[in-house]
Every structure is written in structure tokens, then in C-alpha cells.
Simulated assay, not measured.
Amino acid sequence: MIDDLNLFASQLVTLWVVLEPLSHLSLFLSTTSHLDRKERHKAAALGLLFAFLILVVFTLIGRLLLEAMGISVLAFQISGGLILFYFSMTMIFGDMTSHPVEPDADRGFAALAVYPLATPIIAGPGAILAMVLFSDNNRGAPLYQHIITVVALTAMMTLLFVIFWLGDYISKAIGQSGASLLRRVMGILLAAFSVNLVLNAFQKWLGLPEI
């Protein structure tokens, strides 16, 4: 029971760091700025649903897809770690809100929910990499551990929906400086996570002691 709770907690924290709700909130608000409140809520619901389905698909067949393309999980882990590290540097040293996504007044909430909300904002490279690694770690594990991974993803998508729903209030409450501070803290955690991914891949490849 304790091991299952630890698995759930570790995966939830990883998804929190990778998805970084406040950065996604700023992108969500800038992308849907031309929509009214009701349409914005619909866009959030659809976008998160589509992102959830994309991530579940990669959880189920991500490993098979890599094998079909002749890509090892370790190579995918290293490349993903490098991409996440670069992204974490932009979170720490760059202001991601300085170049917001330009709203397109000609696109409705359904079109925005697919692109760019579902992908690449929510179901981006970091989230996809995390789900593939979760799936690989659960290989050969009992079915309930795979269910725990899906439950962790569901919990994270629900939390994101609540944050998007309350986006206007949260943005006013913490202000731009507060959002910038939290984004940089999340960037530091993401940098450590990405470095750990690369080091673990080399540890497994070279047969070195665990880090």
C-alpha cells in the first residue's frame, strides 16, 4: 500500500513539474483572450480531454512505437532530458510571458482546444516523455500499477482544469511577479529532473552504480 502511494505521489509530482500549471495558465489565458468566459471554459475542458487522450495513447503504445522506429528507450530518455533541460533554462532565465501566443479571433474554442491547447501546450514533449517513461518503468508490473499511472494523469488534468477555470482570479491574486517567481522555482526542479533522466540513462547503459 505504501509503495503504491509512493508511486502515485512520485508520478503526480513529476507531472506537476513537467506541466507547470502557472506557465500553462499564462499560455492558456493569452491563447483564449478573445473568447468570453463560457467559451474559455469549454476550450479548457476540450483541450484537457484531448491532451489526456494523447498522453494515454503514448502511455499504452509509446514503447511499441519507439521499438518500431528502432529507437531505444535510453536514447529517447537522453534526448528528452536534453530537451527538458533546455526548456527549464527558458523558465529560469527567460520570461515565457514576454512573447505570448497570439490569439486568433477567427478560430473558435473547439479549434483552439485541439491546437495549440491540447498539443503542444499541454501534451508537449515533456509530458509525452514522462508518460512513456512511466509506461517503461511499469513494464512487467501488475495491471494496477498501470492504473495508478492513469489515475495520476487524471488527477493532474483535473487540477489543471480547476486552475484554468479560475484563471482570471489566480492571475489577479498572484500577479505577474508571483507567477514569474514560481515559474523559475519550477524551472529549477525541472532542470534537476532532466539531468537525472540523462544520468540514469547513462547509468543503465554503462552499468554504473545507481545515482
Rank of each mutant, 00 (worst) to 15 (best):
A9P: 11
S10W: 08
F76E: 02
V13G: 06
R37W: 13
L46I: 07
L49E: 02
L22V: 12
P21S: 09
Q11S: 13
Q77D: 01
G62M: 02
E67P: 01
A45N: 10
L66E: 03
S72L: 05
W16R: 00
H24K: 15
S10Y: 09
V17K: 06
I78K: 01
G70K: 07
T32M: 03
L46H: 10
S79F: 13
L55Q: 04
A43C: 11
T59A: 12
S30G: 11
L49P: 05
K42G: 11
V56K: 03
L55P: 01
L12R: 04
F8D: 06
L19P: 00
G80H: 04
D36W: 05
Q11T: 00
L12S: 15
R40H: 06
F8H: 07
P21M: 00
L74G: 07
L5A: 14
W16Q: 13
L46E: 06
L65S: 10
G80V: 08
A68K: 10
L29F: 03
V57T: 12
M69F: 15
S30K: 02
H41C: 11
T32A: 03
Q77N: 06
S79I: 09
V17W: 04
L48H: 05
L7F: 09
S26M: 15
F76W: 07
T59C: 13
E67M: 09
L25A: 09
S79H: 00
R37F: 07
I54G: 04
G47N: 09
A9S: 15
V13Q: 10
M69R: 08
I54R: 03
H41D: 13
S33F: 03
F58H: 08
R37Q: 14
P21D: 02
E67S: 11
L53F: 15
D36P: 01
Q11A: 07
